[in-house]
Design a protein around this nucleic acid. Structure first.
Lengths: 128, 128
DNA sequence: CCTTGACCTTCCCGTGACTGGAACCTCTAT
DNA sequence: ATAGAGGTTCCAGTCACGGGAAGGTCAAGG
């Protein structure tokens, strides 16, 4: 398989696949013409990576998960630990964003939003 | 005021203040020794910027907000529009993160998390 | 007067995870 | 023969800074 076919199959841009090869997440053989040659297993790895990334796992977490995925003797506890750590990260981000949203939406609600210059949003940004 | 004092007053790192000067968000005079000299108005601007950044506004949005803040003839509607746009961004991010959290936490809940290799999390990442 | 230490300066590199583009090579179809 | 699609490498840029080097400046103490 050439890179374009793998890209179509996995939904990842070819650029991203090259990048993943570059940083050692996947390996690809080479044909006589210098083109990358992918096996089905590589395509599966890339699908796995695409899904993990879509769930917000960092590249380093993906590397760990990929290693666990390929390790037949893994303990599911190790996988779960990585996932739980990431869940905590996600929750923290959601909390931070929700706090921003709450503060900001309160400011917005108090703002007339008309032609006059008086603006509680700007006042809220000035200071407490 | 030297940069250190402004940093202490605004809570922004000196590096950040220099960066903001670099990209033209604030301006600073210079003393005979080459040190930056800040006026109170600069410190207020920086406080404003720090608060806007803390609410997640991008630097470019901060630039707009700062311009509106300094424009006595502004329409509060313009401020509100910027804020509403940002609120949408925040909501979108929260939704995306919540979707990740939901998917991931379901996988985690189905995972025994023991010494055995069987792992629904990895299976979920493989494909549907 | 000299030193110490805190503070300031500029400059350059690195971050994460790609994305865009340039310049060039290879394959397939007409 | 040529056009176009697809492949290759390499370099630069993104966003908003942070780290650290190399060096100038200031106030206090010996």
């Amino acid at each position: 398989m050439n890179i374009g076919e793998v890209a179509a199959q996995t939904g990842l841009p070819a650029k991203t696949i090259r990048y993943y090869e570059d940083i050692g997440l996947v390996t690809a053989g080479r044909g006589a013409n210098g083109y990358r040659v992918f096996q089905n297993t590589d395509a599966h790895k890339l699908t796995f990576l695409g899904r993990a990334r879509a769930l917000g796992f960092s590249i380093e977490h993906c590397r760990e998960l990929l290693a666990l995925w390929e390790d037949r003797g893994r303990a599911s506890a190790d996988v779960r630990a990585v996932a739980l750590g990431h869940l905590d990260d996600i929750e923290a981000k959601i909390s931070a964003l929700a706090a921003m949203r709450d503060t900001l939406s309160e400011l917005v609600q108090n703002c007339a939003g008309d032609g006059r210059p008086d603006c509680p949003i700007l006042k809220g940004l000035e200071g407490p």
